[in-house]
């Protein structure tokens, strides 16, 4: 009896909270038409999102070259699903990811890099920085575990420094401080500098995860390989790393999801990511400020990709449990 009461209580609370948003988003919303149609209704103006969807997703990407985006997304999703669903070796998977990244860059080559806005920028930075950060993080972790002397100390220093900083601080450093440390006359585009910040941040996070993996590999493994007469690089590549990396794939996917969410910070250092393109769309005087609708839209976009990644990561975990 009390269970029934508790269930009804939750239902009542949910209805009380969600009634307003539901009416606003579903019952009274306007799906098509112009600004004047929206003003006649009290609900959400989804016609605005429909009209400005292109601008929010792609920003200033030239309209006549949208066909290139088809190739980009084909390559992106194909490589993503290959990475998660294939059962090949991790080296092969990463090779395919790298190849697809180069392919995507070629697809987008005809368009100037300053016009890769919105979702395109987010996806490009996400994939590029994860691809570079993965081997770099592995390298840092191996140096931290097996390195000697100052090499080890340097690795620890770098990892702890980056992990102690908030990512937004690193982004500020990359956008404001880094140009002062470059040789006189050098100009590195801002996007590349931000890439550097993301790569550092993710590789430090991944290095900590790989360190956990490396510490799980027994010391006997190394001794056994030594007694077989294997050389140090062979031991590392064939014995240690496969045992250290494979159990850590699920945490690595979680780091990937965190990285995807962190790409939303690029707007704060005035890169044209989804938040900035939605602000650009809101400047249109014909429509007025439908801020809530545009935020809901980009929230939905981010949710779609993060949920996809966590779903694929879950599949990976289930398969790992079965094996």
């Amino acid at each position: 009896m009390s269970k029934l009461f508790l269930n009804f209580f939750l239902l009542a609370v949910m209805i009380f909270i969600l009634k307003g948003p539901f009416e606003w988003l579903v019952l009274n919303s306007v799906w098509s038409g112009s600004s004047s149609d929206c003003q006649m209704h009290t609900g959400a103006c989804l016609a605005f999102v429909r009209d400005k969807m292109d601008l929010i997703l792609w920003g200033t990407f030239p309209g006549d070259k949208r066909i290139l985006l088809c190739g980009y997304f084909l390559s992106f999703f194909a490589s993503l699903f290959f990475f998660f669903q294939s059962r090949r070796k991790i080296e092969v998977k990463f090779g395919v990811l790298l190849f697809s990244f180069v392919l995507e860059s070629f697809f987008l080559w005809p368009v100037s890099i300053s016009k890769w806005n919105g979702l395109l920028l987010v996806l490009y930075v996400f994939k590029g920085s994860y691809l570079v950060a993965f081997p770099l993080g592995l390298f840092l972790a191996v140096v931290r575990r097996y390195g000697k002397g100052f090499w080890r100390m340097g690795s620890i220093g770098l990892i702890e420094f980056v992990r102690g900083m908030p990512l937004i601080g690193l982004l500020f450093m990359a956008s404001v401080m880094l140009p002062l440390f470059l040789p006189v006359g050098w100009e590195i585009p801002k996007i590349i500098r931000l890439f550097g910040a993301y790569i550092l941040f993710v590789s430090a996070t991944l290095a900590e995860i790989f360190r956990g993996g490396l510490e799980q590999v027994g010391k006997g493994q190394m001794d056994a390989a030594n007694s077989l007469g294997l050389r140090w690089p062979t031991t590392l590549m064939k014995i240690i790393l496969p045992q250290a990396v494979m159990p850590m794939m699920v945490p690595c996917v979680n780091v990937g999801i965190t990285l995807f969410k962190d790409t939303a910070l690029m707007g704060i250092v005035s890169m044209m990511d989804l938040t900035m393109t939605s602000k650009m769309a809101l400047k249109d005087l014909d429509w007025g400020g439908y801020v809530t609708e545009s935020y809901l839209f980009i929230t939905l976009v981010y949710f779609f990709f993060c949920f996809l990644l966590s779903y694929l990561g879950n599949c990976l975990r289930k398969r790992a449990v079965i094996h």
């Binding site: 969410k261 938040t275 980009i298 981010y302």
Partner: peptide, 8 residues
Amino acid sequence: RNIPLVIQ
């Protein structure tokens, strides 16, 4: 968990 904090 699946929506960036900054957008929230």
